[in-house]
Design a protein around this nucleic acid. Sequence first.
DNA 1: GTAGGGTTAG
Length: 573
Amino acid sequence: MQSLLWAVSSCRSLVNCQAIHALVIKSQFINNGFIGDRLVSIYTSLGFNDYARKMFDEIPDKDLVSWNSFISGFSKRGILALCLNAFQRMRNEADLKPNKVTLLSVISACTVDGALCEGKCFHGFGVKMGYMEEVKVANVLINMYGKLGMLDAAYVLFNTMKARSLVTWNSILALHAQHGHSDDVVGLFNLMRRAGVKPDQATMVALLQGCTELGVVKQATVVHACIFKCGFEGDMLVSTSLMSLYAKSGQLIAANVIFGELTKPDAVAWTSMLASYAMHGCGSEAIKLFENMVDGGIYPDHVTFTHLLSACSHAGLISEGRKYFEDMFRVYGVQPRIDHYSCMVDLLGRAGLLEDAVSLIRSMPMKPNVGVWGALLGACRIHNNVELGKEAADNLFLLNSSDHRNYIMLSNIYSASGQWKDASKIRSMMKGRRLVGDPGYSLFEHGNRVYQFVVGDQSHPNSDKIYAKLEEIVRKVHEAGLVRQTEFILHDVEEEVKIDMINKHSEKLALAFGLLVTNTSIPITIIKNLRICGDCHSVMKFVSLIEKRTIIVRDPKRFHHFANGMCSCKDYW
DNA sequence: GTAGGGTTAG
């Protein structure tokens, strides 16, 4: 009997499971509830809901564990409807009182499904049943609130807990990291240490994610040292996060070193390296890596393809992108998802093949989402296509009317083609809906600080020197006869005013500061919250040549490496 | 307790 239990639990495929199932029937243990419970969870976890239901119905004396196996099976698969249905049946048909395990399952199903209302109900249920003292129940609720956008509610729960476990701390850290609240991550981590809780690899992963949001170079080295000291350097999860952090801080080579040190990288690690190449615009390296991954017998999944396609898109590798998009299902059996369509629309649109992008959207088997229309809108901005841009924007407004970026993008498309009236109409529409754009800023790390610059910023104590350096750059640019690209200033103002505005862009200020305070041997790394402007892009190229400096700029999506008067993006971005 | 997912990587 014990060996049968083991055998059932070890099933990894349907055939396997059915064979054992037959054995169970033959051995007359089929009426044994314990074995039935296991078979139910295996069938659900493999996704064979009908087999699971049939097996479940055949269990003679269903106890709480039987019901929990059934419910948690659906929960694991993220099928909330079946989960809730089973929960109701359990109470109505069997008249059983759900215990904490039941609650854990249904609440995590709500988290996966984004069902905040139902989740709140179960929270209330937990309070009523007196389960809130259970650390695991509180943890799963913290996670639910945090994942569903109610970080405050999660924090209140965390704060009111009498006893917290390591997982509680890890959860609250991870949630703050995922919401981009880096300072809170650092603060909470210090509290955790003071509370005498010993961190594990999940803690490290959350910390690393928190640093990614800070987006600074030095942070990666500091946490790396901490990881090394704590003995987590061989951990695959930690290494993968670390790799990603280095890549996101502009240190592609460091990321590559960590990847190289992994003895047996899994699909996630390979994909992380691939994503790093994609982010840095290294299309052919990404493709080479992908081929090595496949040759090594590692199966690419849908995330791998998202990054592979985005790598092709960033590098303008149109035919390669088309080929991989076709191959992903035909050769690798990975069904294209909506994100892959977004990537393809981006790839085609960016290359100016707007008609191809549109026909791809029309032929999609699913309804296009904000990602797809957003990619088209972005392409229309690059290629100044008012008509298609309007269509994309209209669809975006229908799907989400509160994202200011779409209004700005459309307004810019109008301005770029001189349609100032339409542009200002969109601006006032934005005002009417009380939407304010993100002010653009650039970050630069120096010493132990991160400096933030906005357009025309004068808040830095050495502002005078920064502006003097900036003037010097502008003068050299002028002397070299470099054509200024004022079309990136989308206001209906005089040319002279435009030049003045463009000269004070946050990335230029950060660059001037970087030139003043750093040694020539290290690259100047600037982080932007918005896409780099075209004029700044050419000025950066020029400065990299005359000052003999490497300049690295990260925008929300990718990196530009400037050296010897050229950019790694080859002016394709 | 027979043991039924508390967090964490691209």
